[in-house]
Amino acid sequence: MRQPAFQLGMARLRDGGVLRGLRAWHVAVVLLALAVSLAAAATRLGTLGSPSSALAALIDYAPFILRGFALNLAMSVLAMAIATVLGIGLGLMQISEAPLIRLPARFVTHLLRNSPWLVILFLVMYLLPIEIRLPGGGRIPLPDWVKATLAFALPVMGNISEILRGAVRLIPTGQWESAEGLAFTRGQTLRYIILPQCIRRGIPPWMNWYALLTLSTPMASIFSVHEAVSNAQASMEAAGARPELLLPFYLFLLCLFFVYIYPIAVWTRLLERRYAVR
């Protein structure tokens, strides 16, 4: 039976059962990863000379790198917000009954989904101006981090559009028929009956794309956006660009992303499993 499982899932969501699902071992894995990376860093420091200075450099520059990481998070959240709004719009166009709306939307969706993110990033960075001139004479500056955010939003937007189309298709036709029998228009049916049921199906893949998006934000370092990776590289330069700095600094970056993304991935898996029991 489909519905009881759904009710159960909703009840558990309300109880906060999903959060309880993040068991102790998940936390343990995260801590272990941190410990291993620090140990590895310490080992490198021990074998390759000037140990105190490399670790000291990491500690010195950690706040600077963390500030960069804050920008990664800001870009990921902003890009996801843009991708969600535009992706839902594009997805709704994809399920339109009018071919003139549906076919272009389908084309754009597939184009965005099937292009390398790096190519989209290059295109956006080089095609967008550094500022937008308003007719009134005002100017909106477009810093590189904003352009990069838009670039990361585009492929995710295509994928969210496709998530929506898929979720709508999976709603049993009986839902459409009974709504039609009750004199709902197509728009009302979508709004009150179909889309609310799509949300739960769409959330796990949506979270998955958020994780992927966040993991892609370091690509912005190519354009010297001051995010975590860029700042880490600048820190290493400033600390003398010694090879023994590489491992601790990059391991630190890995840990930062891991600690943030891993719980999201675990939560997504939990939701997927919950919604898969139907």
Binding site: Q3, F6, G174, Q175, E177, S178, A183, F184, I193, Q197
Partner: peptide
Amino acid sequence: FQQYNLFPHKTVLENVMLAPLKV
């Protein structure tokens, strides 16, 4: 219909009220 086709995300009362309210 044979398969009832109730709206699974709405309560019994909401199922009955939805069309008169919105339509």
